[in-house]
Design a binder for these strands. Sequence first.
DNA 1: GAACGTGATGCACAGCCGTGCAATGTCGGG
DNA 2: CCCGACATTGCACGGCTGTGCATCACGTTC
Lengths: 336, 336
Amino acid sequence: MLQKGAVSARDVALAAGVSRTAVSRTFTPGASVSPATRAKVIAAADALGYHVNNLARGLTRAESGIVALIVAELDTPYRSRLVSALTDRLQTAGKVAMMINTDRSDASVEAALRQAIGYRTDAAIVLSGMPDRALADMCLRNGLRLVLINRDEEWPGTIRVRLDDEEAGARAARTLLRVGCSRPALASSASATASLKARANGFRAGLAAEGVVPMEVVLGPTSYETGLALGTDLFSRDIRPNGIFCVTDLLACGVIDAARHRFNLRVPADLSVIGFDDIPQAGWEAYDMTTFRQPVSDIAEACIAWLSSPAAGMDVETIKLSAEMVWRDSVAPPGE
Amino acid sequence: MLQKGAVSARDVALAAGVSRTAVSRTFTPGASVSPATRAKVIAAADALGYHVNNLARGLTRAESGIVALIVAELDTPYRSRLVSALTDRLQTAGKVAMMINTDRSDASVEAALRQAIGYRTDAAIVLSGMPDRALADMCLRNGLRLVLINRDEEWPGTIRVRLDDEEAGARAARTLLRVGCSRPALASSASATASLKARANGFRAGLAAEGVVPMEVVLGPTSYETGLALGTDLFSRDIRPNGIFCVTDLLACGVIDAARHRFNLRVPADLSVIGFDDIPQAGWEAYDMTTFRQPVSDIAEACIAWLSSPAAGMDVETIKLSAEMVWRDSVAPPGE
DNA sequence: GAACGTGATGCACAGCCGTGCAATGTCGGG
DNA sequence: CCCGACATTGCACGGCTGTGCATCACGTTC
């Protein structure tokens, strides 16, 4: 029975003395089987360690039950939280997540989606990189539904989940102004995705409403190290900022450490800092950072809800969620 | 052509004016097809957006190309790094990762493995929780190879990847003694896996060799918050430790923050701290922590190498790797 | 006792692919 | 001109499941 692969329904049927159909029906909810044969089948299946072959099942059914997560830099606090939430929700919805890594280049995103199509994934959730129109069409033609998280293009048959980044940026600006910050700065990374740009724009707009123009620095990828560099740049200037909005918590952590350990500045006495994402480290006592909370579970919930509703058709849909502000202790009126 | 699902080989054959077999052969490396028909097939496939159905392919072949990663608390620095490395390596080896979440209970590990069997996964890499012997047997009977990372049981047909945690713990002990730490402490979490226990035992043994017995605290799950609680407990005692080995960096971060922000202690002047894992935050300037580096890529490499070698048979195998010490600035001779 | 509805069961087929085997066509050599 | 070698191609089958349809047994009602 274990000739080369796994135990199949035929093996179970043989052992239970019933037809293979009976085995199939036993494991198909809603099918018609008598309690007696069902019992026999289950007994045999347990004894042999039988499990329905989802690959073959996906061949017949329209759905495979697999959903692809396309992501770059999974080893990053925000990403890993989102992926964790998504896989959790997928699982409770009876689906399973297939992880596909990307280096964010177009080529690798394309490869990832091709991989997803190859496994007849029910959907692909794109967290990183941006498939182009032709690619999206190919997915659709293969019955692959596309979910774009915090990306900006909109295409038929696709759902977008977006945050009100712009509004959050504006709110950061108003907050800094309200505590009396006279020299605000904007720190962002060079790998600007749609949402990072929106945050920056919102911040600029919020300041502009009061006639203020921020100092700006843009550097490298979104990372702690970039944050250090951003801070070092800003604090080396003749006129130092006394309030900084960082488009990402990771950057903010770096900025705070640069301020404290390289320039002996006090946060928040000498410098107010606002981040974005509310990664776990933002809540650590070493940072205690005021930031905006990404509604990670809401995002995940929204994606899975859309995927589970068979109604979700060919229309473009955009789900807007809002990022709440989390008040901690990195923002305060400047010292004397 | 897009009646309900995806485009199949028959569609391509029809469009290219060849037999379905020709299509299949075009996408099967090493099969015999003339350049002319191959070109026709590829043209048609591109036009239609055809991709080989890996589900069906996995039905015929012995291998599905899917490897399951069974993990709890993915949203944790060490886990996410390991998972990221594993998916990366799997991908370059031509396989793909299926993520299955666990809450670490036996029931959910069992569910995860059943899920993996259902999808005819080539292997399952277990990072969290511990399948029991019966479960492991069921996997084997279904042709599922099992890789256990930092778990301790050994079963036929299974590979274990282990660190020399014991030795590392001992080395932490010797290090603290060498810098003149007179009151060492051991901080560990209540959710003690095999490797955490080994680190603690190694530390105790290392101290015992010099006739020293550490203070000990054990609390909650492995998290930053637990670290805070551990530190608060230790520093509230009449006799405070002046050197602490934390079985995990996450715990160490909490301990350091408790020391600094709740008890005004200086690290390393008043207190030396050693962690384990070398998570990114350990290198942040706020912590600058001496710790042991988990050879994440070596671990991933070893797993994938074993999976790719068809020779890897029914023998128990154990791969031992060593955790290098990373010197940073959280360890120093106690101040005057 | 006959007609009829109902639930259980099995046959056979579809879904998509890889591959052994036979058939076909082509080319070179004798 | 014939024959063998060889590459190419297609048929048919196997792999595993779900399901429409026909069959059958059984119980009920008149």
